[in-house]
């Protein structure tokens, strides 16, 4: 009985970690799905999102600021963080990626640019805010729910619900909406898109708005769950979420979501059986094994050569 409880407890922790990976992986997969671009700055956009959440919530809650109530502050922080982080993503696209695309640059150069943008965001943060880590103020009243020995916090439930909601929303947008249809079409054949009268740039901006907005939301929730914000926090989360997206089948929304949860599960469950220093070793071995069995990821379809 105790063992079962322990496993369930690990499982719940896995869901929380997996939800973060999923939220970030969704952004990778959206941009990749449309532009075939691995947006390596995305993990750092997530980091910027967490910092935006910190500044917005501090301002809203502090007596010198707006001195809002906790609930109002939480809702406003949620909305503002999402919007402002979208702005960061769109700015990167506008300033760094679009000029390269306009000149028909090879994809490699755009990927390298993305990598540099990420490093730039990390170091701009370091230069502006210094090396000390920040802590998000309390935005919700934490409650611990106890189900026969298994405990879960209301925050964990919130995080998992947010991940599911975002997943369903994005999947619906991509599969059912007009914009989603255009996004899928671009990924197949960008050349023919303007011939349909569709402004490609508008669709790309829309994609970055969604991907970065979700990263901002992830940053806020991450700050609420793990307390400490550092300028390098996006790097490892970004890498892992990217790997999760690839294992799920990059370009596929379901793949990003499941890949994220899977990575979270593996990472959280390994310490249940083995020393926790084995965590990354084992979890990445499992991911490599999955890729060996399905090189295109869980939901990925091998690209057929087009004539």
């Amino acid at each position: 009985m105790d063992d079962t409880n322990a496993i369930i407890q690990y499982g719940l922790n896995a869901l929380q970690l997996g939800s973060f990976y999923a939220l970030i992986a969704l952004g990778y997969t959206l941009v990749y799905g449309v532009l075939r671009l691995i947006n390596f700055a995305h993990g750092d956009v997530f980091m910027v999102g967490a910092y935006i959440a910190f500044f917005v919530s501090s301002f809203l809650l502090s007596p010198e600021g707006l001195a809002c109530g906790q609930t109002t502050a939480f809702v406003l922080t949620l909305v503002l963080t999402t919007i402002l982080t979208s702005g960061v993503g769109v700015t990167l696209e506008r300033v760094a990626y679009r000029p390269l695309r306009r000149q028909g640059a090879h994809r490699l150069y755009v990927v390298i640019t993305a990598l540099m943008c990420g490093i730039l965001l990390e170091n701009a943060n370091l230069a502006l805010l210094g090396a000390s880590s920040r802590t998000l103020p309390d935005l919700i009243h934490k409650e611990v729910i106890n189900w026969g020995g298994v405990t879960i916090t209301n925050l964990k439930i919130l995080i998992f619900m947010a991940a599911i909601l975002v997943f369903v929303l994005l999947q619906t947008i991509v599969m059912k909406s007009r914009f989603g249809m255009a996004m899928r079409a671009i990924s197949w054949d960008p050349f023919a898109i303007p011939l349909m009268g569709i402004p490609v740039d508008k669709i790309i901006v829309f994609t970055f708005v969604m991907g970065s907005g979700v990263a901002g939301l992830g940053g806020l929730l991450y700050g609420m769950a793990y307390v400490k914000l550092e300028n390098t926090m996006g790097m490892m989360m970004g890498w892992k979420a990217f790997i999760a997206a690839v294992v799920g089948g990059i370009g596929d929304i379901r793949g990003a979501f499941l890949g994220g949860l899977l990575l979270g599960a593996v990472e959280a469950l390994v310490p249940a059986f083995l020393p926790s220093s084995y965590k990354d070793l084992i979890s990445f071995s499992i991911l490599i094994a999955i890729l060996c069995l399905r090189p295109t990821g869980i939901f990925g379809v091998p690209l057929t050569t087009k004539i």
Binding site: M181, A185, W188, D189, P194, L195, G197, I198, P199, I307
Partner: peptide, 30 residues
């Protein structure tokens, strides 16, 4: 895209370039 949407002139390109991952109906609606 404005040549298409404002001037009402478009091209059916060589090699067709249809969106293979979309249904026939979605191609037309797009």
């Amino acid at each position: 895209h404005q040549v298409v949407s404002r001037l009402n002139m478009t091209l059916a390109p060589e090699g067709r370039h249809i969106f293979g991952n979309l249904t026939v109906m979605e191609n037309l609606k797009l």
